[in-house]
Computed example of a mutant assay.
Amino acid sequence: MNFTCNGAIVEIAIRHMVVAGWTGRDATAIRHHIEELAAIGVAPPSATPLYYRVAAALLTQAGRIEAVGPDSSGEVEPMIIQSGGRRWLGLGSDHTDRKLEAHSVALSKQVCAKPCAAEIWDWDSVADHLERIELESWIDEGAGWQPYQAGTLAAIRPLADLMAGAEFEALAQEGAAMMCGTFGAKGGVRPAARFRMQMRDPTSGRSISHDYATATLPEVA
């Protein structure tokens, strides 16, 4: 895949993809996320955090994805990319089929594309203030953009701990990406036709954003 970093094009081979789940640092926040997913029929996790493997080919910078049925939705997440001894911080959406999630969280993540922003930041430029990085998302349910999620990386377990738990360094020898968890949704988890996300570095004032639409494919039985 081609990304932009500091105005230059960086070509990165990504052969492994991990989605880290249940990564909240605050036990109350984790419980809240478990409860909001339980409200749509999702069983609680066997442990926290968990590391789901999905196909690397699901990662996309497209502005439009397709999903079977009307029950999928996005989640804003920090994304670590590492290849060839270099590491970057990016922005992604763990788009998930919520109906299938009630049957299997792992399968619900595998069946959906994982949109990401085309711009990434060099890891060293943010490593000393990672926890100040801000993430937000908005959804459009037909009446314009509405706030959906917001938080800082301080609410997520340290990214170094998540990399260790996922054995990310070993995967990254061949090129890997990992989405690192998200925040509770304002008004509850729900699908929307359009999803917008942003990551902001308050130290430098720069930001990365991406939005995409989800086209619904017919659910044929």
Rank of each mutant, 00 (worst) to 15 (best):
M1Y: 08
F3D: 05
T4V: 08
C5V: 11
I9G: 11
A13K: 11
H16P: 03
A20M: 11
W22R: 07
W22V: 01
T23F: 03
D26H: 12
T28R: 14
T28N: 15
A29M: 13
A29K: 13
A29F: 05
H33Y: 08
L37H: 10
V42L: 11
P45F: 09
R53A: 10
R53K: 10
R53D: 07
A56W: 11
T60M: 15
T60L: 11
Q61G: 14
Q61L: 09
D71H: 15
S73R: 00
S73G: 15
E77W: 04
M79T: 08
I80N: 04
I81R: 03
Q82T: 06
S83M: 05
S83Y: 06
G84D: 08
G90A: 06
G90N: 05
L91V: 05
D97Y: 03
K99V: 02
L100S: 01
A102H: 12
A102C: 07
K109R: 12
Q110M: 14
A113P: 13
C116K: 00
A117Y: 02
A118V: 10
A118L: 05
E119I: 07
I120G: 00
D122Y: 01
D124C: 08
S125I: 00
A127W: 06
D128Y: 05
E134P: 09
S137R: 04
I139C: 01
D140M: 03
E141H: 10
E141F: 03
A143M: 04
W145Y: 00
Q146H: 11
Y148I: 09
A150K: 04
A160M: 12
L162T: 03
G165N: 01
G165W: 04
A166F: 10
A166L: 07
G175E: 12
M178G: 00
M178V: 03
C180Q: 06
F183V: 11
K186H: 15
K186I: 13
G188S: 07
G188N: 04
V189S: 04
R190C: 07
A192W: 06
R194K: 13
F195D: 01
F195M: 07
R196V: 02
M197E: 05
M197P: 03
M199Y: 01
M199L: 15
I208P: 02
H210W: 08
A215Q: 14
T216M: 09
T216I: 12
